[in-house]
Simulated assay, not measured.
Amino acid sequence: MANSTFTPGPRAMNWLIFTTMAATGWAFYVRYLVIEPSIVGLACDAGLKSAQCQMRSVVIALFGWSVFGAIALAAAAFQFLKPSRAGLLIGFAFAGIALVLYNNIAGAIAAMLLILSLARPGHATK
């Protein structure tokens, strides 16, 4: 078993799928229902104080600094060097967010590294 690859177990895969889909779904919501509609942008720029407008300004600032892509790349690099369930979970979640929220290159590289990390030697998890 010394040459076995890192393989998440069924329970870990269920959490991985759920978390990645939830994070990517949140990113789709934010992009297509909060950031891109001009009516929301005009209302927020006019001074509307709502949680949606605060989230909009925070997310715009974060993807302006490529924070989502940087977190995805850092988690993917950590996962590639030392495979773990947490690294895979965080990496795929932020790679999905980065791909949807305008950090395409960093998100794509992170997703590629995460997929490659599944072929690296590591302990099997349950």
Rank of each mutant, 00 (worst) to 15 (best):
Gly47Lys: 06
Gly9Lys: 01
Ala72Tyr: 01
Val67Thr: 11
Leu73Gln: 01
Gly47Ala: 04
Asn103Glu: 11
Phe94Asn: 10
Ala27Asn: 10
Pro10Tyr: 13
Thr125Asn: 02
Ala75Gly: 04
Met21Asp: 00
Met55Thr: 13
Ile109Asp: 04
Ala46Lys: 03
Thr5Phe: 10
Thr24Asp: 07
Asn104Met: 14
Val30Pro: 07
Ser66His: 11
Ile109Trp: 04
Gly91Asp: 04
Tyr29Ile: 07
Met112Lys: 08
Arg120Ile: 04
Met13Trp: 14
Ile97Lys: 02
Leu114Arg: 04
Phe92Asp: 03
Phe63Tyr: 10
Glu36His: 01
Met112Arg: 02
Gln79Ile: 08
Phe6Trp: 10
Tyr102Glu: 12
Pro8Cys: 04
Ala75Ile: 03
Ala23Asp: 02
Ala23Thr: 05
Phe28Asn: 05
Ile71Met: 09
Val67Gln: 03
Ser57Val: 00
Arg120Val: 06
Arg120Cys: 01
Ile35Asn: 04
Ala76Glu: 02
Ala77Pro: 05
Trp26Ser: 06
Thr7Glu: 15
Ser66Met: 12
His123Pro: 08
Met1Trp: 14
Ala77His: 00
Ile105Asn: 09
Val34Gly: 08
Ala95Phe: 07
Asp45Glu: 14
Trp65Ser: 08
Leu81Pro: 10
Val67Lys: 06
Ala72Lys: 00
Ser84Ile: 06
Arg120Glu: 01
Gly9Glu: 00
Thr19Cys: 14
His123Met: 13
Phe6Lys: 10
Ala106Val: 11
Trp15His: 05
Leu48Ile: 03
Gly91Ala: 00
Leu88Glu: 03
Ile97Asp: 01
Ala2Leu: 13
Phe92Val: 00
Ala46Asp: 10
Asn104Gln: 13
Ala61Trp: 15
Ala86Pro: 07
Ala2Val: 14
Ser117Lys: 07
Val30Ala: 09
Val30Cys: 08
Tyr32Lys: 10
Pro121Ser: 09
Val30Met: 08
Ala111Glu: 07
Ala119Glu: 12
Leu62His: 02
Ser50Met: 08
Ala86Glu: 13
Thr19Met: 09
Phe6Tyr: 13
Ile39Ser: 13
Ala27Pro: 08
Ala108Tyr: 06
Asn103Gln: 01
Gln52Phe: 12
Arg120Leu: 06
Phe18His: 02
Met1Asp: 12
Phe68Tyr: 07
Gly47Pro: 09
Pro37Arg: 06
Pro10Gly: 10
Val58Asn: 11
Ile71Phe: 00
Ala72Thr: 03
Met21Leu: 14
Pro8Tyr: 09
Arg11Met: 13
Met13Asn: 12
Phe28Leu: 14
Ala93Thr: 02
Tyr29Lys: 11
Ser4Ala: 14
